[in-house]
């Protein structure tokens, strides 16, 4: 959690410093800028497990170089190594009774958070790189399925002498931090495309979950 605080503090300090230094700065392009935006994002996650994600982000310009944003979305499977290890322990134990037990694990995560986006200037280019940092909450679902001979026995595990804990069932909510960067490419007067990479670290209780989100987005400024 110290890392999260550090990232947030640095981001905030950076944002504040930049805001103070550039409060009078005019965008080099000289184009009028809309103060708010909303964008849809989607893409792939990689890290502990490869998957997909989608989400929505919105924000406004706090200063000419700094946006405040909020985001929400869903990662289809953010499963970390911890749930795999725990599920395999159970599957191995079950296999002692019934050979051929296999287990499938997924950890879908719904996330919501916010943060700051710092826009970098590239001369007169319309493309606009940015760095971002933020924090939020994720609700992670423990989706574990045990199969014996192809039959789902997850619902009858008590008959096999197994009781699943919350490490392999239910869901939990944990804080997360996010950091990353990307490139905004405006087209038209209000629309833009975005390519971004965001490292999201969910502070699950037993073992953190890392989701590297690389995606594309389409947005509108207004």
């Amino acid at each position: 959690m110290k890392h999260a605080l550090t990232v947030i503090a640095i981001s905030t300090a950076l944002a504040a410093g930049t805001a103070q230094a550039q409060t009078t700065t005019v965008p080099p392009t000289g184009e009028p800028r809309a103060g708010r935006y909303v964008a849809g994002l989607g893409g792939w996650t990689f890290g502990d497990k490869g998957s997909q994600f989608f989400g929505v982000e919105g924000g406004f310009a706090w200063t000419p170089d700094l946006d405040v944003f909020v985001e929400g979305g869903r990662v289809r499977d953010a499963a970390g190594q911890g749930i795999h290890d725990a599920a395999n322990i159970v599957a191995t134990g079950l296999a002692r009774i019934q050979p051929g037990v296999i287990v499938e694990t997924r950890q879908p995560a719904v996330f919501f958070g916010g943060g700051l986006r710092y826009r970098l200037r590239l001369g007169h280019s319309r493309a606009e790189p940015f760095l971002l940092g933020g924090a939020g909450f994720s609700r992670v679902e423990q989706d574990v399925t045990f199969l014996a001979g192809g039959t789902d026995i997850t619902g009858t595990l008590d008959q096999w002498g197994v009781v699943l804990g919350t490490d392999l069932s239910g869901s939990f909510t944990a804080g997360h931090i996010v950091a990353g960067g990307g490139l905004v490419m405006p087209f038209g007067r209000q629309t833009f495309l975005e390519v971004s990479y965001r490292l999201m670290r969910i502070f699950a209780e037993d073992e953190g979950i890392t989701a590297n989100r690389g995606g594309l987005g389409f947005g509108i400024r207004f």
């Binding site: 959690m1 947030i8 405040v68 943060g115 924090a135 909450f137």
Partner: peptide, 19 residues
């Protein structure tokens, strides 16, 4: 903007507490 910045800080604090 200032309110939003404070909200971000509060959010970060909450995330830290959520650990």
């Amino acid at each position: 903007p200032a309110v939003c910045a404070l909200a971000v800080l509060a959010l970060a604090g909450a995330v830290a507490a959520c650990g």
